[in-house]
């Protein structure tokens, strides 16, 4: 009796384990499905002209997203100019100077900001830049992405800087080196690899953002390298083509999606590789 009850408990435990495994598989399933369809639908449309040509008008077959790919990088450049110095120096404050209470507050605000829907950043920057300047612009799009990056990078860089052992700070200060020089030349330099990793991850994350660009960068069918004019971006172009009624544009959307996903995943994989060797070095 007792024996069989115990056996039943063991079986139940096994059943629940199997159920949890099933759930894990279901969680991963969309990843596999999305990848499968991206490759099936998109691979055929990714060719040389996709990377070199401008979008063709409706009805003409072919064309590419060259301007959108370059535009995405331009937007990321502006975003990095805003987000990286602000975020890293903010992280320096948290890691090197802040008091327990102030740090708690600032971290809390960062976590809250990271939960703000990205579309909100779009309309805020619209009100902040597009309305006064009276034009959608690359600058506005970059600023929106930069704002999203700031809290991400503050949190990341604080974490990375706290990994730098205190012994290095003490050794530098004991040489009579001023604190700010110690922070710049010793702490930031020691943490450089981790910081670069974090910045790349943040860039990969905002590279796929569409909602904040809808009313800021706006999109553009042509080349634009002027900060004050609308600019194309890969996610915007994917969105525009996906909701269009034309089959050829749908194919282009899949191709764009494949390129965008490949870029973000490449960064993610590269970063994982970097962090692995970093944590191995620190463990040593």
């Amino acid at each position: 009796m007792r024996e069989s009850f115990y056996r039943w408990r063991k079986i139940k435990s096994g059943l629940v384990s199997a159920l949890c495994l099933l759930c894990a598989v279901l969680v991963i399933a969309p990843l596999g499905l999305v990848f499968f369809h991206l490759l099936r639908e998109g691979a055929s449309a990714v060719n040389w002209s996709f990377f070199t040509n401008l979008p063709k008008p409706v009805g003409e077959i072919g064309g590419g997203m060259a301007n959108a790919i370059v535009g995405t990088f331009e937007l990321l450049g502006i975003a990095a100019l805003i987000g990286v110095p602000t975020g890293v120096l903010g992280g320096v404050y948290l890691a090197e100077y802040g008091s327990v209470r102030v740090n708690w507050l600032l971290r809390f605000i960062c976590d809250i900001l990271n939960g703000v829907p990205s579309i909100i950043w779009g309309i805020v920057v619209y009100g902040l830049i597009v309305v006064p300047v009276k034009s959608f612009s690359a600058l506005a799009g970059g600023v929106a992405l930069g704002f999203i990056m700031i809290p991400l990078i503050v949190r990341m860089s604080e974490e990375v800087l706290l990994l730098v052992p205190n012994g290095y700070r003490e050794a530098a200060l004991a040489l009579g080196i001023a604190r700010w020089k110690m922070t710049l030349h010793i702490v930031l330099k020691t943490a450089l690899k981790g910081l670069v990793t974090g910045v790349l991850l943040a860039l990969a994350r905002v590279a796929g953002e569409t909602a904040p660009l809808l009313f800021t960068a706006f999109g553009n069918r042509f080349w634009n390298h002027n900060l004050h004019d609308p600019i194309a971006a890969l996610p915007l172009q994917i969105f525009a083509y996906a909701i269009s009624p034309y089959d050829d544009w749908h194919r282009q959307a899949w191709a764009g999606a494949l390129v965008l996903v490949s870029m973000t995943f490449l960064v993610n994989v590269a970063v994982r590789f970097l962090t692995r060797s970093r944590s191995a070095a620190l463990a040593k």
């Binding site: 052992p165 012994g167 050794a171 080196i177 330099k189 020691t190």
Partner: peptide, 25 residues
């Protein structure tokens, strides 16, 4: 000051480690 745990700066060469105090000052 010399510390319990040796702490040469990991990003610097042997030479850089020795002169870092002078250079950053």
């Amino acid at each position: 000051m010399v510390f319990q745990k040796s702490n040469p700066f990991p990003t610097m060469s042997i030479a850089e480690n020795v002169i870092v105090g002078l250079r950053l000052n």
